[in-house]
């Protein structure tokens, strides 16, 4: 019984020792400057249920065979500051397309127009959640 308890304790220690680096980034929004940043996992598991951050794209097919694409990024931090920007810029849409599921997101916007001026993602192991379930 003693050895079982000891092995459980050791395995817990070993798990902690091999957890890898984590670097949570709280969602931070500076509405006056048009800046937002934060990682999705930290936002998702924040104690404040209003905190979030993310980006999305909508594409609409047109009768002529082309399409119109809209991208947007949005978030809210623990202080209640809200950020939203939109873009039809092909390069910025490309950045949104390349986003990951758990990464750090940062974006800036022109406060006067609400248009995104910068969108960035960082897909790093230290932004992953503590444990990912297997299929």
């Amino acid at each position: 019984m003693k050895s079982l308890a000891l092995s459980i304790a050791l395995s817990m220690f070993a798990g902690a020792a091999h957890a890898g680096m984590t670097q949570p980034a709280e969602v931070d929004i500076d509405a006056a400057a048009g800046f937002a940043g934060g990682d999705q996992v930290t936002a998702r598991y924040n104690a404040d249920p209003d905190v979030y951050i993310g980006c999305g794209v909508r594409r609409f097919a047109s009768a002529g065979g082309g399409f119109t694409a809209f991208g947007f990024c949005q978030g809210e931090d623990a202080d209640g500051d809200v950020a939203f920007c939109n873009t039809a810029n092909a390069d910025l849409l490309g950045v949104i397309d390349s986003s990951g599921e758990f990464g750090y997101i940062t974006f800036s916007w022109d406060v006067a127009t609400g248009e995104c001026t910068r969108i960035g993602f960082s897909n790093q192991s230290f932004y992953l959640p503590k444990k990912l379930d297997r299929n």
Binding site: A31, F70, V111, T113, G114, E115
Partner: peptide
């Protein structure tokens, strides 16, 4: 789109 973005940003 600007109108929508501004409306969301100012609440």
């Amino acid at each position: 789109l600007s109108e929508l973005s501004r409306a969301i940003n100012d609440g």
